[in-house]
Amino acid sequence: MNRFEVITPADLASASRLLAQDGHVAFAGGVDVLDLSKQNVESPTALVNLKGLKELGGIEVRPSGELRLGAMAKLSEVAEHPAIRARFTAIAEAAGEVATPQIRNLGTVGGNILQRPRCWYFRNPDVNCLKKGGDTCYAISGLNRYHAILGGGPAFIVHPSNLAPALIAMRASATIVGPAGERTVELEKFFTLPTVDPKRENSLKSGEIVTEVIVPASPSSVRSHYLEAREKQSFDWPLVSVAIALDRAPGANTVRDARVVMGAVAPVPWRSPEAEAALKGGPLDESRARAAAEAALKDARPMSDNAYKVVIAKVIVRRAIMSVAGLEAA
């Protein structure tokens, strides 16, 4: 780890100005930024401490039914929030599956969606890979059991956020404040593929800060669920995760609207319009759930060591649909 200073700005505007400077990195829960520094993957010269900026805090369900998650809201608070658990179930479940209780007590909403990939080549300071300005994604010819099965290339990382698929399934937007003022971006469009810039995972610009995530009101007819598969039950990254949101007319078994977003399968949270379309075609039963799962992975292109992730992804998508639809496996 290199030496750095910690600067605590007085307000959001100063934070933004500081973050526009070279080597200045936002410091929220500090989980990933300190990992990256200790592993000598990133060497910030200054950490801009966001703790204490009022605009970034809080969790609120507004009278309209809209959910506001301050970027500095703790994952544990999100996981335990009764209204989120009841009306934005997938979001609470996704937050609750992150790492360990200790990390959930430190980790923030903003930090979770902005964390860097876990790829073991990217995280190795001795390997100058494509994401660090090198010319090779070592996962291609190397060890890629945890890498991308969808949307890979030229880098084959997977996006590590648990929360992002759930937020996207619930149509969330991020509020971003920066030198050019405030902007709102649908979270689905916020994440960027390596084809755009292999060194980045999102479109946040220099000096910009994610201040909050807004989730629109969810009708009572919407049910959501987050599910992940991992090797270890304690403190492990998902092999595959999925967030599902289904809107069914009261009493009807047909799907009016559906969102299917997978995590840990692609360099970005991977929404599957194919699976969503499959769900909307007729009565929801196990065979439709299966068809949707097949559709979600139709374009999967596994690498040398990770074809098993395709199998697991289909199972997880199907089970999540079955669960949210209240169906029992035959």
């Binding site: 876990r118 995280r123 090797e231 270890k232 039950q233 304690s234 403190f235 492990d236 990254w237």
Partner: peptide
Amino acid sequence: DDYKLLGSL
């Protein structure tokens, strides 16, 4: 992180 040591669960 990457070397998988079992945990409490």
